[in-house]
């Protein structure tokens, strides 16, 4: 299952049913207080609700703070274990040092890695968005067995572990793979080799990101009201016009979610670019792991980790803007 799409799947599956549920007795005036609701606050039972968050804070929140301190050169305390093994460390005093950050950002190769990562996540997200939107809208406006089949096929990658998908696509798009064999047979040598290139990373990221995008857009498209589509149809609009003028403006929020979650998934991915990507420029996920595992530089790896966080935060801002925008046509 696509690791990168974990959060998206929960949003898909859970929706807001949980957060919007209001079992307050006030909702049903005159009814006696339920024996089961314990005042609807759950008493001590509600404390159980905090368990998963507590776990995530201990094993996700505290590490982020420690990693931030490591990045700023605080090599002692809890960080002494990792820093005693590391190389090229830049210790900081007081608030800390930006030495490790400037060291990386003065490195031309690192800047290339950042721009390569940005290009890959923007292109991948755009392609996935267009693919998923076209497919699901087409299915709504011009239903046919072929489109239904394609929509079914687009969900198949959900069933395949990312590492398998990466390996499969690596051989498929590789120099001895299916596409290059086709190209050779057609007399165009080496025209269709994508493994070891950023284009290959984009293709593979699109492949693994498609299912959740299609599922999410499908749910969005299903929520479009017949009346709005019928009105346009009765006025003589062609399907393309209905899609562009009526349906798409109503799908802005879903589109924002698909774009942003695909982007964050690609940004935080390691397996796909590790197996399929070029050795230079590297995607930031691979760069971070290499910096830690191969170059033994945990402080610099922490800087790369935070670069990814910052890029994700920018995508988060886009998400906040896009999802707050008022829906048109409702």
């Amino acid at each position: 299952m696509a690791l990168s799409s974990g959060p998206l799947s929960a949003e898909l599956t859970a929706g807001v049913a949980v957060t919007d549920r209001d079992p307050s007795p006030a909702r049903r005036p005159g009814k006696r207080r339920r024996a089961s609701d314990e005042g609807t606050r759950g008493g001590l039972t509600s404390l159980l609700g905090f368990l998963p968050l507590a776990f995530l804070l201990v094993f996700g929140g505290i590490p982020i703070v420690l990693s931030l301190l490591l990045m700023l050169g605080h090599l002692g305390g809890p960080n002494s274990a990792v820093s005693s093994l590391g190389q090229d460390e830049i210790p900081g005093r007081g608030i800390g040092t930006l030495g490790a950050i400037t060291q990386l950002f003065e490195n031309h190769a690192y800047l290339q890695d950042i721009s390569a990562t940005a290009i890959v996540f923007v292109v991948t997200s755009a392609v996935v968005l267009v693919f998923a939107t076209t497919l699901t809208l087409w299915h709504r406006l011009r239903p046919s067995r072929a489109i239904a089949t394609l929509q079914f096929l687009a969900v198949i990658p959900l069933f395949i572990p990312v590492v398998i998908a990466s390996f499969s696509l690596w051989t498929f798009w590789g120099s001895r793979g299916f596409t290059n064999s086709l190209a050779q047979l057609a007399g165009i040598s080496n025209a269709l080799i994508f493994s070891g290139k950023l284009q290959g990373v984009v293709l593979a990221e699109v492949w693994v990101s498609l299912p959740f995008a299609v599922l999410l857009m499908r749910a969005g498209v299903a929520s479009l009201t017949d009346s709005s589509l019928d009105a346009a149809r009765d006025a003589g609009a062609r399907p393309l016009t209905v899609a562009w003028r009526i349906a798409l403006p109503q799908l802005r929020k879903e589109a924002t979610i698909v774009f942003c979650f695909t982007a964050v998934g690609v940004l935080g991915s390691f397996t796909v670019p590790y197996i399929i990507g070029p050795s230079s420029p590297l995607m930031l996920g691979v760069d971070a792991v290499n910096t830690f595992s191969s170059y033994n530089q945990p402080q610099q790896a922490a800087v790369i980790g935070f670069t990814i966080f910052v890029l994700a935060a920018l995508i988060g801002c886009l998400y906040a803007l896009g999802s707050r925008r008022r829906r048109v046509g409702r």
Partner: peptide, 18 residues
């Protein structure tokens, strides 16, 4: 959970070492 996964793992390393 929406954090980029790989950077969360990288961030966990100092604590797991400790």
């Amino acid at each position: 959970n929406a954090f980029p996964r790989i950077s969360l793992y990288i961030a966990m390393i100092p604590m797991l070492f400790a």
